[in-house]
Design a protein around this nucleic acid. Sequence first.
DNA 1: CTCTTTCGTAAACGCGTGTTTATGGTTACA
DNA 2: TGTAACCATAAACACGCGTTTACGAAAGAG
Lengths: 341, 341
Amino acid sequence: MNSIEIARLAGVSRSTVSRVINNYANVPPKTREKVMKVIQQYNYFPNVSAQVLAGKRARTIGLFLIAPGHVSSDILTNMLIVSVIEDASAYGYYVLTHIIRDANDTETINNVKEIFFQRRIDGGIFIGAAKHEPIIEELISEGFIVGVVDQEQPEIQQFNRIVANFNNDSGMKQAVAYLAGLGHSKIGVINGDMNRLSGPTKYEGFLKAMQLCGLHVNQDWVLAGSFHEESGYEAIYSFLRTQGERPTAIIAANDSVAFGAIRALKEHGLQVPADMSIIGFDDHPLSDKHHPALTTIRVDFSGMLKRLTSILIAKIEQPTADVKQITLDCSLVVRESCRRV
Amino acid sequence: MNSIEIARLAGVSRSTVSRVINNYANVPPKTREKVMKVIQQYNYFPNVSAQVLAGKRARTIGLFLIAPGHVSSDILTNMLIVSVIEDASAYGYYVLTHIIRDANDTETINNVKEIFFQRRIDGGIFIGAAKHEPIIEELISEGFIVGVVDQEQPEIQQFNRIVANFNNDSGMKQAVAYLAGLGHSKIGVINGDMNRLSGPTKYEGFLKAMQLCGLHVNQDWVLAGSFHEESGYEAIYSFLRTQGERPTAIIAANDSVAFGAIRALKEHGLQVPADMSIIGFDDHPLSDKHHPALTTIRVDFSGMLKRLTSILIAKIEQPTADVKQITLDCSLVVRESCRRV
DNA sequence: CTCTTTCGTAAACGCGTGTTTATGGTTACA
DNA sequence: TGTAACCATAAACACGCGTTTACGAAAGAG
């Protein structure tokens, strides 16, 4: 079934069918109706490949998840997939999801390039990218429209790069201020992956916030991590084997890290928040089900992706649209993992 | 950049470029290498729309999730998305994921049809379909290749329908036998959605298993549910308000239902497994983290989808491939939610 | 030297649609 | 009746690639 058949069955020319489908003005309602009837009767949908070849858009965006480990078990990442799919769907766009296990592997990179250069998609969103991701730079320089979460806005702004970030500074400020308000002055931190933008920015936010509250940062309480549950566990596990003074509160780079940290504390016979207060970051879907329910800095991932998807599609349809950056605020969610000292 | 350009740059004809790309035999290594070099140098990838229009496959499959509620929070469903994407990726296929909130809504159905009829995909997988899903029947009758989880194999087998199921009979048998072995004879059940195939088959499996173990089924202990956490909670909540004898063990249609059931029991002051033994179904990713860790019937969803994806793609590439049905076994996983009586 | 095989070319067609152009046919209004 | 304005058509081209065909050129075999 193609437009020629439809034209024949409706007793009109192929041009008219095309004009009906593409909503051209110069076709009277009666004709339009006649054609539409045949189209629906025969389940006709214009072949998208032919449309693309003829210069139309594919109405498809790519969603690229850079995730070395087991994405499948990360609820948060998975929420985002669904989120983007539904957001795009509202604009009549479809989503091709792709998982990048190793952003440095040549073959993997080639797959990503293939998706863009084969014109499978009109634009793409990258989640979980490192601070500097060569493949993204290459795609942007090739003119592809790309949305990125958690990356720096370069000095020379390009029309085809959209950057979305959270205000980590503000988040950390809220966390530290809350702890200070509870009487804490000995505050430690478990950092995230320093190769990702939110790693260093959260840490810098922490330093700034501590200074603002007039608190001293003890470098022995600055622990390395990498945004994963296991890294939180290991950070605390190692720390507890050392001698010396201990903090009364710890801020984790995200909730997964906080979960791991709490697990390590429990194993060591320390209770949260009785023996140690913990604040997370992100408001992970499981944080309120956790025991103890996790006090955390909420971050609206779904909302961010909704905006990012919307802007991406706007740029696809109207390349002159000039939004290039969005920043969302964070907010403190008080639950049970911190106590007054 | 197109094949004409590449031909010019490599100093060969366009036919030769095409023959290199499609791995034809009659091109000597030296020429192939020369062409490949230019292709890589200029980041050339054949336009997929042109390829499809010229008769090649789109190398894309559709993944359709029928999920009325909040898919985003269902870890299991989300695991499956990632699973299929990675499986397809191994065959050089991409995945277009689509979420169906209401399989009865005309516009929603139209979107699904569009994806197929526009030739965006070579075939599709449906997850969460009802026992009888008109849209699936229509697509199959139109000749599209479709893989379905948890649906009946119709008497007249079609080459383009692939059905994947779990052996629910065997699963229920293991659950009942295990409970019987622990001394339970008063066993209740919370059913799943009876509009989905696994609803009735699990229940029938339960009945058969009870008979096999020589146990009586008390209809007061057969509770209605719908595969969701909330339905498990409500089933038990309502049941506990009734008078009369109570079972010592309950088998839930899946782990989510079991979680809900346990929550209701706890609220009512009943401990699991001290006051009631519970068995789930599926081995949900959170089941071993649950308190108490849930004894359940494990079901290998990822494994099933891996096979289903593999068969779907095999059929796409070789429509005569004649596998039409796969059935996977279940296995009991003993944790902490059942006790000897 | 001739014959065959191998390698390669140029040209053409088809895939299904969007879009433009030149050309009529119909309707409506003055 | 004449003249627009509107509606519709047929034909052609473009998009980029796969595939076929007819045709050579070069190389090797006899």
